[in-house]
Design a protein around this nucleic acid. Structure first.
Lengths: 211, 211, 211, 211
DNA sequence: GATGAATGAGGGTTCATTCAT
DNA sequence: TATGAATGAACCCTCATTCAT
């Protein structure tokens, strides 16, 4: 009786998952195709049947993450309450950072080395940021929030929320979270939300940011 | 007349500089000794005369940075005005991130991969954080600042200030800073300081955070 | 028509042969993987596909020889005539030394440097020697041979028979054997047999020891 | 106050001693100049001031041993009693093998690899062997000893006596000699002497072979 | 599709030797 | 003489990729 073969789609997904976690940990050069293949549960030769090169897999993996993020992290084009909008954004971002820290780490790694691959795709990033800046400037113009530098405001949110993925090892240590538990998003979301709402001169929304 | 040889100290410094910038960009595995040697202006064999292994150079480089930081980033044990103390800390941190982004990136990279090397030296980190937490708790107890989670407060400052090193490429792009200029620390310090002072319920110190 | 590739078994055998002869000549350190590969008729990278390290190949090669010898060199547990038993043993040993001098030389080399690898496998050696000592002591007890030191008796046979492998170059020179001929085992076996039989007070078996 | 410098002669002697013991253990390729220098108590650069190359040191060391042996191991040109002559020869040889096993091992190693260096100096060896063969043939002709193959007789003595140097590790193990003691030459000399005297049809000389 | 085998390039490191002082 | 520094060649091994089946 033949063992059930994994379908092409399953294999592709396994490769993508392997790529995210392995590239996140040791980078492009630090990850061997051997390691990737094993993590995906296939042989090295088989891997090369599905990808055309390690570099390209790396690029595809990054783009996959960026595409995903585009759907997750944005301010509504027609936002209602700034406090709610900001709080929701932060909650989504922190949850994601804690649930899928590898994706965040891989992205950070790429940017840290000068974004040689992502750089070619920054037009989209620019668009997203501009849209959000428009929203923020609208809030400011209508007196709904204190004046902030719209771009830096976004970057700072990004910085803080990403932090709990990128510095997970340190956060875990300083917050006393055991190795076999994920970080508790509740207190993190509460503190981060309060940080940015206060910056805007807004009151924190009572007790809904918790996990 | 013979060309003057570089002194031992100069070579050691060149190796350290090369290690910081190369390891920061491509990591331990992604950086070849060939690359390190070339960046330091020496031959590969000569490099091995000065270091005993790439791994050890990596570790030494990290520890060098951590030692340096211990002297730069701390809250005074006997702090006066919280606003001034926090503002000074942020200013120092941002300046450093912008002046020496490679050091920040190298550190971040190491933590992101789980800190296999730095982990052994985290006792010192704990001490530093505890000291600062004590200071912050003192401020809270005396009603000088609003209640904050002392550890997360520190981590968030760290996150935002580091960001301008780690995401330099992106920040440069979004802020429109040309490749041949450093980021302008003034506005960054202003925005970051306001962010954290407001969190504490404090007024920004007028106009001294600028570069 | 494609040239037939060597089979896995053939390649493994070629590597083993190369290892025996090259390690025998220049030792573990003195033999490069390059040399081994060339001697086996493969490339250096291909060699590493079949072995995991030079050290391990060295160890495997030694153990292979020792295993082979266990089946060749022993006294019968139920020996009949001591003279015949001893003569046969010597004949087998000399034939082997002359046919496969590299194996003998490799073994000698390893022991000469203190047996860092073989030492871990000396329990088996001890057993073999003890068994043979028992046989010899039985002969002595029954008055079949003159008293001898059982262990030294075995070592001396070993010494003399090995000699024609280890010192092949010298023996060849002193006995006038041309480079393209093997040593003639007949006279050697005769002389060595007579040496040890006389030690035991036994008469040489007439004329059967010759090749 | 200056530390007393070692004289040139002392340094040369230290280098020679180091060469014998290091080359004996790991061979020409397996011994680094670093190791030699450290064993001789000097620096690597200083070593190269005294020797012109590692190969030449190796050759000189071998020749030194051979020269020494010429003065030690020979049959008198005008021998009296064969038993005494043979017994003395064996005793000298065993003592030397046990006292200076490195020299014996180095020599054996060189011969085992085909004597690429010593081969050029084998005229002297031939002379020595021929002289001894003459003596032995004289004994045979005068009916003082049983007929033996003169050259093999010498080789066999050589084989057995060398054995306790070359296989010291194994002999130590099988005879139960602790690592911090030398092998006891007494029983070895007794057994070896009896072996070869019996071969000649001679009686062992009572109890003088012991250390 | 899948896989064992093969390979050229390059990885980190050692080393005998030379150089400069 | 002595020695820290330098170097080119090699060494063992890994790896991304390709090939043959």
């Amino acid at each position: 009786m033949k063992q059930t073969r994994k379908s092409r789609a399953e294999i592709r997904q396994a490769i993508l998952d392997a790529a995210i976690s392995e590239f996140a940990r040791e980078g492009l050069e630090g990850t061997s195709t051997q390691t990737l293949a094993k993590a995906a549960g296939i042989t090295k030769a088989q891997l090369h049947y599905y990808i055309s090169s390690k570099e390209e897999l790396y690029e595809d993996t990054l783009l996959h993450i960026v595409e995903l993020w585009k759907g997750l992290f944005f301010f509504s084009a027609d936002p209602g309450d700034p406090a709610r909008e900001i709080a929701d954004y932060i909650a989504r971002k922190v949850h994601h950072a804690i649930e899928f820290p590898d994706a965040s780490r891989l992205f950070a790694r790429e940017v840290a080395r000068g974004a040689p691959v992502l750089r070619q795709h920054w037009a989209g990033l620019q668009d997203n940021v501009n849209l959000a800046s428009g929203v923020i400037e609208g809030w400011i113009a209508q007196g709904q929030i204190q004046p902030v530098h719209p771009v830096m405001f976004q970057m700072n949110i990004w910085a803080v929320t990403q932090h709990y993925a990128e510095y997970e090892a340190q956060a875990r240590f300083l917050l006393g979270t055991p190795d076999d538990e994920k970080l508790d998003p509740g207190p993190i979301i509460a503190e981060v939300t309060e940080l940015f709402l206060r910056r805007c001169g807004l009151q924190p929304i009572p007790d809904e940011a918790s996990s």
